[in-house]
Write a protein that binds this DNA or RNA. Structure first.
Lengths: 210, 210
DNA sequence: CCCTGTGAAGCAGTTCACAGCG
DNA sequence: CGCTGTGAACTGCTTCACAGGG
């Protein structure tokens, strides 16, 4: 009943895109979709869609396509979007504040339940219904709220320390917005979102083109 | 004198990380660095560092390593960080505001010179010394300021339209924060930063681990 | 003797092309 | 007859391992 194990990283990275596309199709009242159409909407190639979906153990209907609702359910299960994982955001600067107000968490299986910072001037302020707490209280917060995901939006200098603290209190995965490479134990999944890096990559291609 | 052409995508994506690491080493007064040390700091494998750097036409010194300043200069040139490309941010919601205040652009070859939105209530407000202008004025703004990069921070529904407008006014590359796949002409480099996708990918790995 | 540069091997992901089912 | 599922070929990236220069 659980879907196939060991889905390739490249496939996992595309599943959220398929999911978003399928949500749109469902909202538009579509009940089935072919790999060709899904591929077009998701910006990939049709063979890739079929190979990716076959990894889920999903079976489409030959001659017809895939059932939208069924596919949504299966992808949702693989990604764990029904889990409602408690999230803490560490670092309430510009970006932390923007994320605290971001509305996209709940429909993706995450719920921001705590905000922390180490600047005493910020403690007690409220964002999106949550009060900023001191980073030193993380152990208690993590225990009380059973935090499973940490989002790091501190300056680069503080990020490794924060990552260590998150790991120490038992957080299960980390999303890092600080522009630095973090060392965490191999069993903790970590992903980074790095604006400066993305811009510089663009810089290369633009530079080349001219 | 220009570095080698045709650097693989995977290498390009790592250059900003090497650059950041080298900036740190330079600040710490280091003048040379071995591939092993650079690899450790950048979180990759030493052979990869050597192969990547060899693509730049850079030559390290056998038995010693690479000269930090020289390497920085070469990577900077490849990435075009001295270009100071004018950037417009389209969509001044939470994220757009956070990016407008973000300080990391200038040292990476980018300068935010304009902010736009389509909500009349936001026009005229100021962020980081810039006044929000109406998105309808984009053609004039782009012409006057010679905009070369567009950052899209609108809701998903508006993003394709905005992308079309950016392409129409001659923007050379696009960074998309909206959670949707954008269609742009093949010659326009585009990258996406997608928080919801990253979270869902984490969701998969965390889910799997338990 | 250390550390780079690089052929060669290995691996992962993509794309092709078609058999086979509804 | 259309569209899925998938072997097989292919492409690109990573890693190994070592020759060779300083």
């Amino acid at each position: 009943m659980a879907p196939e194990r060991d889905i390739p990283d490249a496939t996992v990275a595309r599943l959220p895109v398929y999911r978003r596309t399928l949500v749109g199709l469902a909202a538009a009242g579509e009940t089935t979709v072919s790999s060709a159409r899904l591929a077009e909407l998701a910006g990939v190639n049709a063979a890739k869609v079929r190979k990716d979906l076959s990894r889920l153990g999903t079976y489409g209907v030959r001659g017809v396509g895939y059932e939208v609702e069924n596919l949504l359910m299966q992808i949702g299960e693989v990604l764990g979007v029904n889990v409602d994982a408690p999230v803490v955001i560490v670092g309430m600067g510009n970006l932390g504040q923007a994320l605290a107000r971001y509305g996209g968490f709940s429909t993706r299986g995450f719920r921001v339940v705590a905000l922390t910072d180490s600047d005493p001037k910020k403690i007690g302020k409220k964002f999106a219904g949550l009060t900023i707490q001191h980073q030193d209280d993380l152990p208690k917060i993590a225990k009380d709220l059973d935090i499973s995901v940490g989002i790091i939006t501190t300056p680069a200098e503080a990020a490794q320390q924060v990552a260590d603290e998150l790991v120490a209190v038992g957080v299960g995965s980390i999303l890092n917005f600080a522009p630095t490479v973090l060392n965490v134990p191999a069993h903790i999944p970590i992903r980074k979102v790095d604006l400066a890096t993305e811009l510089q990559i663009l810089g290369y291609y633009q530079h080349r083109a001219s």
